[in-house]
């Protein structure tokens, strides 16, 4: 009896040891009680009771900014009344805050960002946060290392490069500006479908295509600087000069030149390819973009990808506001319809 008991103990012990040995580090349950509760409405904003859907559907609240853009005071409430009503030093009353549904600040008038004219992202820290791997294998890396997007640099580079009226060079400029000469001596290029029908893919990187693109880009830039002279000045000049000299086509080009620099293409999702969004803007005499309206509201309401593209478009124009356009021609640009053509933007 006693022996049997001892044996049993021994065997159980062995079994236990076996089991423990097998599983050195049991994990805690991978699905702990993580409860996603309800959506939250925006914090209090008393007077705004307009259809809450607008907050989602129309990414564009009507903004009626005071004509002279108030200088950026860090002091609270430089903004419209909508915000003054709010308990700004908020007493801890968050339950209410979250409970009360409201639309977005319709009249919040966030003061046309005083500074962001065509030059995008001036205030942002120069350090691009796309932290890339420092380097690949030291030996090969100089050639292998994928060219980094380096957004800040790219922006500057683009800004410096005279904006050529045709989109081609711009697309090339988009390809990564990394040491092109370092790549020249790489292994021979490989077959790759450059003639992809897919516009997004045209933008994608293939290690061997990049080599080619960089060379093209170099050439284009070099040529651009020499040949184009200073089209920038040419474009801006009419703003101050004789209004009669500005043709409709020139007006269009001036708008396009400003807006495209502010438009971050929403290429994160595959499905956005081929999406076009038509947005109507009303513009104040000082160039401030006041109102935006996506023409296809029905699609805006049902198609999340379309909405993402529409939002990116409207964000771009807001970011470029105020637009620099010849005042004498205000009648012509007080209402602008912009067709954001993602398909073309991606295919160049």
């Amino acid at each position: 009896m006693r022996r049997a008991w001892a044996l049993s103990l021994l065997l159980h012990g062995a079994l236990l040891a076996l089991v423990l040995g097998r599983t050195p580090a049991p994990l805690p349950p991978p699905d702990p009680p993580l409860v996603v509760e309800v959506d939250l409405a925006a914090p209090p904003e008393p007077e705004e009771t307009a259809a809450p859907e607008r907050a989602e559907t129309a990414p564009l609240p009507e903004r009626v900014p005071a004509a002279p853009p108030p200088e950026p005071k860090p002091a609270p409430l430089p903004d419209a009344p909508a915000e003054t009503d709010r308990p700004d030093p908020p007493e801890p009353q968050p339950e209410e805050a979250t409970a009360e549904p409201q639309a977005e600040p319709e009249e919040s008038a966030p003061a046309p960002a005083p500074a962001p004219p065509p030059e995008p992202s001036p205030a942002t820290p120069p350090e691009p946060a796309v932290r890339e791997l420092a380097d690949a294998a030291p030996a090969e890396s100089p050639r292998i290392r994928p060219p980094r997007p380096r957004p800040a640099r790219l922006a500057q580079a683009r800004a410096r490069t005279p904006p050529v009226p045709r989109p081609r060079p711009a697309r090339l400029a988009q390809s990564p500006p990394s040491q092109p000469d370092a790549k020249g001596d790489g292994p021979p290029l490989e077959r790759a479908d450059v003639t992809s029908p897919d516009p997004l893919d045209a933008l994608l990187r293939s290690v061997e295509q990049v080599d080619r693109r960089l060379r093209d880009q170099e050439r284009q830039q070099g040529r651009g600087e020499r040949a184009e002279g200073r089209p920038e000045e040419g474009a801006d000049a009419p703003a101050e000069a004789d209004a009669g000299a500005v043709s409709l086509a020139e007006l269009q080009r001036m708008v396009e030149e400003q807006v495209y620099r502010c438009w971050i293409l929403p290429v994160g999702a595959r499905g956005v390819r081929g999406l076009n969004v038509l947005v109507r803007f009303s513009v104040a005499p000082d160039g401030t973009v006041r109102r935006a309206e996506v023409v296809d509201r029905e699609r805006l309401a049902r198609d999340p990808l379309f909405r993402i593209v529409a939002e990116s478009a409207i964000r771009a124009v807001r970011r470029c506001s105020p637009l620099q356009l010849p005042k004498e021609r205000y009648a012509q640009w007080r209402a602008i319809e912009m067709n954001f053509d993602l398909e073309k933007a991606l295919s160049g």
């Binding site: 933008l203 293409l265 290429v267 309206e293 012509q332 912009m338 067709n339 954001f340 073309k344």
Partner: peptide
Amino acid sequence: VAAVGLSRPAWGQLRVDITRGRVEPMP
């Protein structure tokens, strides 16, 4: 929209195609 259309100069007086943009991370 209809009301706006009546009370203002027609939309699309200036129509612009935006056919390029930037590929960069969103700040």
